[in-house]
Computed example of a mutant assay.
Amino acid sequence: MRTDEWWDLIEQARAAAGDRADDRNLPDDPLPGALTEVLAALGPAEIAAFRLKAIEVTGTAYRYPLWNAAYLIEGGCGDDGFMDFRDGLVLLGRDVFERAVADPDSLATLPVVVRMSRGESGWIGFQSLGCPIKDAYRRVQGETGTLDAAVEAAVRGMARPAKPAGDDWDVEDDDEMRRRLPRLAALFLD
């Protein structure tokens, strides 16, 4: 699956979710169901290709600067939390995702992040992008074992980094956070 086609499917789901597409903390979050619906219109091979492209796209966000931004936004962020953060970041759309990967401090402009900085409800992360994909596959194919096997076999052949890319720094050092992520630090530290 081409990257543009993959992002078009994400945007279709976002359009179906409407003005409620940017916050994963909603009790009745419409976006996962909308993504399931969009993907269920595809064939099994296309859904599997979507899953593989999701792994590839979220892998581009496996970067220390973004992880450190997630740590600041969420008040801590371990391995699993960063996977959830990257999955949720994808659901914010291509522009937000690519801008955040290039400049994690750009996340300070998102309304959900501003709300979170005030202690109001909101969340960027998403438990697992794999869930709506599996739900769609199950709806189309009646099972998910063949999806799991295809993805597992393809992932074995992928080159994946052992550690995140980019500069790392001490996330507990407020001065360093202010230097490297000034807009986010202004929201969460000042």
Results as ranks from 00 to 15, higher is better:
55 I>Y: 11
34 A>M: 10
145 G>W: 04
31 L>Y: 06
117 S>F: 08
59 G>S: 14
12 Q>C: 09
139 R>M: 03
111 P>V: 07
59 G>P: 07
26 L>C: 05
76 G>N: 12
97 F>T: 05
116 M>N: 04
131 C>S: 12
75 G>C: 09
57 V>T: 12
132 P>T: 02
57 V>E: 13
105 D>M: 04
86 R>M: 03
27 P>A: 13
140 V>L: 09
27 P>E: 14
37 E>H: 13
35 L>T: 06
80 D>V: 13
39 L>E: 11
46 E>P: 06
92 L>S: 07
134 K>F: 02
53 K>H: 05
57 V>F: 03
69 A>L: 06
134 K>N: 10
45 A>I: 00
32 P>I: 04
75 G>E: 10
101 V>W: 04
143 E>P: 01
133 I>N: 04
108 A>L: 04
139 R>F: 00
43 G>V: 04
117 S>V: 09
93 G>E: 10
64 Y>A: 11
139 R>W: 00
118 R>F: 06
105 D>F: 05
47 I>L: 08
35 L>R: 07
54 A>L: 05
65 P>S: 10
28 D>H: 14
113 V>K: 02
106 S>N: 05
29 D>N: 14
71 Y>R: 12
107 L>R: 10
35 L>A: 06
28 D>W: 09
68 N>E: 13
121 S>C: 01
48 A>E: 15
32 P>Q: 04
16 A>F: 01
50 F>M: 09
131 C>K: 11
55 I>G: 08
23 D>K: 03
29 D>L: 03
74 E>M: 09
101 V>M: 04
119 G>P: 12
48 A>W: 02
103 D>F: 01
95 D>R: 15
59 G>V: 06
142 G>I: 06
132 P>K: 01
52 L>V: 06
123 W>Q: 11
128 S>G: 03
117 S>T: 08
100 A>T: 09
145 G>K: 09
33 G>E: 15
109 T>A: 15
114 V>Y: 00
50 F>D: 06
96 V>C: 07
137 Y>R: 09
108 A>I: 03
91 L>D: 02
40 A>F: 05
63 R>S: 12
78 G>A: 14
110 L>A: 10
127 Q>K: 14
105 D>L: 07
44 P>C: 09
24 R>E: 12
37 E>V: 09
117 S>H: 08
126 F>I: 00
102 A>P: 03
38 V>T: 15
114 V>P: 01
56 E>D: 15
19 D>N: 14
31 L>C: 07
106 S>E: 05
31 L>V: 07
41 A>W: 00
48 A>Q: 10
11 E>K: 11
57 V>Y: 03
67 W>D: 08
45 A>R: 15
131 C>Y: 08
62 Y>E: 02
118 R>I: 02
84 D>F: 14
119 G>I: 08
126 F>V: 00
75 G>P: 11
129 L>Q: 02
44 P>H: 10
126 F>L: 12
79 D>C: 00
72 L>C: 06
